[in-house]
Amino acid sequence: MYLAKIYVTHKPSILDPQGEAVKNALHRLNYTSIDSISQGKFFEVKLNADSKDAAVKTVESICKDLLVNQNMETYRYEVEEG
């Protein structure tokens, strides 16, 4: 069994109004040191695979097929035995 942690965020070139709204709220709470916030999605995926390479291949595939809209989002992941 493997555990994949997948992080999906907006591409840097894409405006992230949710991140902006959260940053502005923190500024209103006097967290003036906050420079920028990017809001994204986090997935924990447990999967069966014969090897770590096979697990990575499946994770890459599910990112492209469903979890990520590659027009506007980018992603990274960690895969560990779990």
């Binding site: 894409i14 405006l15 109004p17 949710q18 902006e20 709204a21 809209n69 027009n71 506007m72």
Partner: peptide, 10 residues
């Protein structure tokens, strides 16, 4: 083609 994102005004 393309995508629909959050309104800029939120």
């Amino acid at each position: 083609p393309g995508s629909l994102q959050n309104n800029t005004s939120m």
